[in-house]
Design a protein around this nucleic acid. Structure first.
Length: 490
RNA sequence: GGUCCAUUAGUCUAAUCGGUUAGGACACAGGCCUCUCAAGCCUGGAGAACGGGUUCGAGUCCCGUAUGGACCA
């Protein structure tokens, strides 16, 4: 079968935000294509005129490129099998339907809404699975042609014979599906636009797609597609149905229960490499159980045999872990650049970012932690400063500590971590104050936070002037604070 | 309701042809390190849905049941 070059495709609908599932299926398609030196095609399925938008289409392009997937052919890059937008191919579909009509593989159906409803109801009562009973099959061809010519509203249906179809899925083997599960499928709607099934099959054939790699949700409609290939006299592609990504409750991933937009993950500061890496971990494993790897490594090891079929839960925790691993592995300057591009401008990042590199799992976690660097008038409430002492402390005394320690710092020649630490430890020893206590008091005074990067490095980056000022502010705040209530006797 | 697919710890998964104390990772717990938080390191708890069968031997093959999911209605 196929000495033909491998050609695969993804065919997203441009409705709404770009979906992680699209990236997932895209990744598998891309990996398979690259692995076999084939082509990866992007086709836009915008036959739903109501819901499709150009903005959404552009967002899909952008998001897929962002995540690192690129296609060899598509609406924006062109290619020898275009056009790659279904809305630009309607004449092709109509023409193909004419062939099916001529050969008798398809027939016009003139049933209107109420009629169909009646049929559906009767079918239900008869406990039939099909919603349509094939009523219009009985119309003689001449009459049908005349009614169509007269402009009577109709759809075109596929004549589905009795029997079964065996779908050979590359991952699951043979799947037998009885035709009593399949309606005489509508191919062309009343408005003359194709349905998914028709457009999909025609396009896949004309674009010479060799392997249809798509989500499992399509497996039950594959017989319709196989029947269509047969009706056209075409050789069908190979079928590969991928497991569906799941919510935590195992239902098909959905935006009600899980963020599914690639834009969301970009926005919170997931690295595209991490997203791709994470998706590659869902349902596919590396032979050596490696979990952190690049796209080219994945491509090298990719194999259908390494795909597992249970629907994997999209676990954001693991994605964040993976993202953190990759953030830590980055060159600090590159990390600063990426934060600058993605979130906040400023040269100050170069100095500050390294302090937080091992403390963020996503780029978006940077600013909330580092904001204190950018607050000129930082004034921490006394109540919080006092929290540095377990069980509270006398603010007057704490104020004095800050003043004295601050003087030591002011006297330093080099405002570098080592001398700062040395000076502060010396003061603690002399004043008989536990270092941990003083350090926490300083940390709160300088940053307003209890969890920060190492104190002395933080001070150096913050700078002598800012430190001095913040310590004086905190000392003053404490000095003005009321004395603690005397502890109840007992 | 019908059909199809799936089923290793809370989650992602590994284990050439059936022979392993069922391995790794995330998360969780404890500890080490330590100026806090992280990171790192060490340790720990936690698993084959159930029942039959085939076999000397089954997570691995077969059947049934259950559960989950998808699709169609």
């Amino acid at each position: 079968m196929s000495d033909r070059p491998v050609r695969v495709r993804i065919a997203p609908s441009p409705t709404g935000d770009p979906h992680v599932g699209t990236a997932y299926v895209g990744l598998i398609n891309l990996a398979f294509a690259r692995r076999h030196e084939g082509s990866f095609v992007l086709r836009i399925e915008d036959t739903d005129q109501e819901r499709s938008t150009r903005a959404s289409e552009q967002a899909i392009f952008d998001a897929l490129r962002w995540v690192g997937l690129s296609w060899d052919e598509g609406p924006d890059v062109g290619g020898p099998f275009g056009p790659y937008r279904q809305s630009e191919r309607t004449e092709i579909y109509r023409e193909h339907v004419r062939h099916l009509l001529d050969s008798g593989a398809a027939y016009p159906c003139f049933c209107d809404g109420p009629t169909l409803e009646g049929i559906r109801k009767r079918q239900r009562e008869l406990k039939r699975n099909k919603g349509y009973d094939g009523t219009c099959r009985a119309i003689p061809p001449d009459e049908a042609r005349a009614r169509m010519a007269a402009g009577e509203p109709h759809v075109i249906r596929l004549r589905v014979p009795d029997g079964t179809t065996t779908v050979h899925d590359e991952l699951r083997g043979d799947v037998v599906i009885d035709h009593d599960q399949i309606d005489d499928q509508v191919l062309l709607k009343t408005d003359g636009f194709p349905t998914y099934h028709l457009a999909n099959v025609v396009d896949d054939h004309l674009m010479e797609i060799t392997h249809v790699i798509r989500a499992e949700e399509w497996i039950n409609s594959t017989p319709k597609h196989i029947l269509l290939y047969a009706a056209f006299g075409w050789e069908p592609p190979k079928w590969v149905h991928l497991p569906l990504l799941r919510n935590h409750d195992k239902s098909k991933i959905s935006k009600r229960k899980n963020p599914v937009s690639l834009l969301y993950y970009k926005q919170i500061g997931i690295l595209p490499e991490a997203m791709l890496n994470f998706l590659a971990l869902l349902g596919h494993s590396m032979p050596d159980e490696r979990e952190v790897f690049e796209l080219d490594e994945f491509v090298r090891e990719f194999s259908f045999q390494r795909i597992s079929l249970g629907g994997p839960v999209f676990d954001v925790e693991k994605l964040l872990w993976l993202n953190g691993v990759r953030i830590r592995a980055m060159d600090p300057r590159v990390l600063a650049d990426r934060i600058r591009e993605a979130m906040v401008p400023g040269d100050w990042l170069q100095q500050v970012v390294p302090l937080f590199q091992e403390r963020m799992r996503a780029l978006g976690e940077f600013m909330p932690q580092a904001a204190f660097f950018r607050q000129p008038g930082l004034d921490v409430p006394a109540s919080e400063l006092i929290g540095a002492i377990k069980g509270g402390g006398d603010p007057k005394i704490l104020s004095k500590w800050l003043t004295e320690a601050g003087e030591r710092l002011d006297a330093l020649r080099d405002f570098e971590p080592a001398p700062i630490e040395e000076a502060l430890r010396a003061w603690c020893e002399q004043a008989d104050v536990p270092t941990g206590t003083l350090f926490m008091l300083l940390r709160l005074s300088l940053t307003g936070r209890k969890a920060t990067p190492p104190l002395f490095e933080t001070m150096t980056v913050l700078g002598r002037a800012a430190c001095s000022q913040r310590l004086r502010t905190a000392a003053a705040t404490l000095k003005a604070a009321p004395a603690p209530k005397p502890a109840p006797a007992g």
